[in-house]
Design a protein around this nucleic acid. Sequence first.
DNA 1: ATGATAAAACTAATACTATTAGTTTGTCAA
DNA 2: TTGACAAACTAATAGTATTAGTTTTATCAT
Lengths: 192, 192
Amino acid sequence: MPRQGLSKESVVQAAVDLIEEKGVSQFSMGKLAQRLKIKPASLYNHVESIDKLMKLVKEEAIYQLVQLENQAIAGKKKNEALFALAEAYRSFARNHYQLYQVIMAFPKENDLVLKQEAGEIISPFLKVLADYGLTENQQFHWQRVLRAMMSGFAFHEQAGGFSYFPIDQDESFYIAMQCIANGLCQTGGEKR
Amino acid sequence: MPRQGLSKESVVQAAVDLIEEKGVSQFSMGKLAQRLKIKPASLYNHVESIDKLMKLVKEEAIYQLVQLENQAIAGKKKNEALFALAEAYRSFARNHYQLYQVIMAFPKENDLVLKQEAGEIISPFLKVLADYGLTENQQFHWQRVLRAMMSGFAFHEQAGGFSYFPIDQDESFYIAMQCIANGLCQTGGEKR
DNA sequence: ATGATAAAACTAATACTATTAGTTTGTCAA
DNA sequence: TTGACAAACTAATAGTATTAGTTTTATCAT
């Protein structure tokens, strides 16, 4: 095996680093090659295309997010778990917004690997919802409600959509989550 | 004034049409020029750059969305207005997803025109919230909650993020909006 | 009708983007 | 030492936005 040093994994890692540093919109094969001190064409010895590369970056990003989510809810129940999950999600979107964008922006393929990762993304939500005494169907619906609220909030917060009024965004987020928590307790409590 | 026919407005309109037909990701100055039967360079007689052009497309898209929102809530109050607004928003995101994407994806500039449009986007939400007996601050917070939920839902619904479980998306949306409606009534009713 | 004017088209060029084909080179194993 | 193979290379294509400079032509004033 000739000329060691570079592998598929190290290329993906370099892509992740570059995206986190300069932003996903600034990423290109040329800049990645420059950072790795090779010519752009040489990248194709390690990855098939920029799309496949971004898919790998997305998988890494999803892995990191799911990791944080599962850590956050470990050993917690009901509202404590719910708010911890929400905070972990929001933190990731804030601290790694470029990676978060990769997760959200790049197409959901009918790919088996990503189908499994979709399951991993949803899993922490279902774990949290399991404690509220919902039917299975209700869990599925509320999982959507929860994810919609969180991703919508993360998006607007980062894209500047919430800067029209100079009021605290933490408080808005708390109100949003409390609203959902109330809905959950009500739905679960009444057992309909 | 020489060679009539093409103007800034008609270029923007052609761009809107092309984006709605082929998708924003497929849009380019070359394809727009091809459709208008001119060379790409000639477009720069009418628009400064592709960024400025997309800004104009975004303004048009925002205008259409705000129009629909205001129509939807006209003459309605409280939950009736809330659900009508939500439905109008969701319909636009479904029926004109490419234009919706332009609104969401392109950067919020510190531009006066877009600052005004941000106000127009927020305005229908504030109108609806005005009937719930909230304080001004509460209105600002709930406006964010509402927009986060709606945009998060629209995004996942279109991007395929809600197709993991084969359950009705309308029902999920109804649950989400009912959750917010309950939160609003509760907050407003208690008058704290 | 004629000619000047200026807008709107054009051509040609630059600098990016991803990607492929074909070639060289370096390293490891036999 | 030699053969093989992986990983780099060079060179080329086709697409992207954009600028500079040139030509065309519609309209307006003479």
